[in-house]
Write a protein that binds this DNA or RNA. Structure first.
Lengths: 340, 340
DNA sequence: TTGTACGCGTTATCAC
DNA sequence: GTGATAACGCGTACAA
């Protein structure tokens, strides 16, 4: 009933040849006679022989697995990145091991340690908010010092020398804000998170720069910085109630769609009275009412590029210590939360 | 600069003892003298020795990896399941290898073959739509016959003997439809997919049963069956334009929110004129306008249970051939797309 | 108390 | 053409 996996040894015993003969025969080696090869191959096929990946990994010191450590998975952006990684990695024969840090420094460390002991050939990761806040990157340092390649994407740090893939967050925010200004908006509110998150910091910079370049004064009271990416509905409500604005630019999708709803319940029309733009072009943006104008982050592309950089490094023999940072261009996707 | 991984052998050579002494010393074996143990442990700590997972896997024939094969990841439901699996599996020291079938039979087969050769201890999976349509489950059969444990969740088949976790789709649909009937709705439309998807079939059954139990006639013209879970905006529009209804029950979140928007643009009020209920309680439901009344599928719980069943089976020595199917209760989450 | 030998499944080298 | 041997890194039964 239970046909357990068959090994080279089993075939050798059954066919009364040596293990190495079997091994060679299965690889169609020239050394082996046609007869033997056919016999072995037929037998292997019959019993559905498949080489044991683990044994090969041990021998080659290559697992063909890549470890992906991300802060969360219930975010559209990260899922698109994973899909990009998966797609590319699979095409090159790699599996993807996904670990979630859940925005926790400790979990990030533990996950990396679990994987760094031979389970994977390299890491693709985006830092947890706690890690960025703490500024402690020793776990990354250890891994890179062991010669395990790492690619950081989106939430990165400059303290680690490795390949990186990001989008130009500042430019994305700049373009979004510029679009609002071009519509004639003068009082543009900004809802984001504390600066410790690398992406938020850059986006706020872009927002401020756009205001400045267009002769608008930045008003601190029009900026709300929440402590996490988790939505704090209460504080957003207070902020929107207390303020006076004709446009809102948010750091993510959920903040945008939630703010929009609050504004709508006050009887204001979108986009006639207030325009909205946010970061992340996900399902919420496409299906909210009205649909949202958003800065697309091209997560899938980001994943593909990350995977490509990582696998290239893994498979390159040379011990080069040159790292690059790829910066993708964000795209403004115009929908109905702005005036077209 | 590059401190490559240290092995037992390295420690043994350096300390001039045998490999097995080192091995035992690191496990605090009683056989080894205090002196040696301290020496070895100190050295190991200093050079940050960590046993090589691959070697251990080869020896134990246990990888501590579990393979998860799902049709898509850019769906809230599946991400919550993954999170549940991850959480539970990690707590028990397992890693999660995620593979996407992208609703393709071939990809599903290839992914399973990649993993089945020693990379994982067991599978957790949800079938691709193409697999359910084809009705070809040989890849699953092969795997189970090899003694690799499999847990199927959500999109399952009765043709394979293995553990299964689902929610009571029929009951969920029944309760949703009942809720609409209790509101006084008489013309309840249903937007779903073709019956080959196990979950859709069950949900439609529940819908029909609720109508019947409450003396309402089922009207074929009020049911739209799309060929895939991918949204076909055109056909939904035609359907909603051609029909006359006072409530809509959809098989997923996107269909629901999209239908709602179409109805709103006709000037109808929700829920006063038309009520909406859908399956899957995700972000869209929470943040759409109005927010959606939905059947929650408890994905995270489903993931946890799947992981638990799988790992229990993996770690149980006995060769029992008893399988169970866990059926979770769906919950109706009431929001503003229905009359409260 | 320590060390030797063997096995996990595979491949590569070298001898026959 | 074929086979024996070593090696990948670890654990363990057994010998010293």
């Amino acid at each position: 009933m239970l046909k357990t996996k068959i090994t080279l040894k089993d075939i050798a015993r059954e066919l009364e040849v040596s293990i190495s003969t079997v091994s060679k025969a299965l690889k169609n080696s020239e050394e082996i006679s046609r007869d033997t090869k056919e016999k072995v191959q037929a037998f292997a096929k019959l019993y559905n022989y498949k080489p044991n990946n683990i044994a090969i990994s041990l021998k080659n010191k290559r697992t063909k697995n890549i470890g992906v450590v991300i802060p969360a998975i219930v975010h559209h952006f990260f899922t698109t990145v994973i899909r990009g990684i998966e797609k590319y990695a699979n095409a090159r024969g790699y599996n993807v091991i996904v670990c979630l840090s859940e925005e926790s420094f400790d979990k990030e460390v533990i996950n990396m340690e679990m994987l760094a002991n031979g389970s994977i050939d390299g890491f693709i990761m985006s830092l947890s908010s706690e890690t960025q806040q703490k500024g402690d990157f020793n776990h990354l340092k250890e891994v890179t010092e062991q010669g395990i390649p790492v690619v950081l994407f989106d939430r990165i740090t400059n303290e680690i020398d490795c390949d990186k893939v990001i989008i130009d967050d500042q430019l994305g925010a700049y373009n979004a804000t510029k679009k609002l200004i071009d519509e004639g908006r003068k009082r543009i509110a900004h809802i984001t998170t504390d600066d410790y998150l690398s992406v938020s910091k850059e986006r706020t910079k872009g927002y401020l720069k756009a205001l400045q370049d267009n002769g608008l004064e930045a008003d601190e009271s029009r900026i709300l910085k929440l402590s996490t990416m988790e939505i704090d509905e209460e504080r957003i409500k207070e902020f929107l109630d207390a303020n006076d604005f004709d446009a809102v630019f948010c750091v993510n999708e959920i903040f945008t769609v939630y703010s929009m709803r609050l504004v709508q319940t006050k009887g204001l029309r979108i986009p006639e009275d207030v325009s909205f733009i946010g970061f992340t072009d996900g399902l919420l943006s496409r299906y909210s009412n009205p649909s949202l104008t958003m800065v697309a982050q091209h997560g899938e592309k980001m994943g593909e590029i990350s995977a490509q950089m990582l696998i290239d490094k893994v498979e390159s023999e040379k011990e080069e210590e040159t790292f690059q940072t790829k910066i993708l261009e964000p795209t403004l996707v115009i929908r109905n939360s702005t005036v077209n």
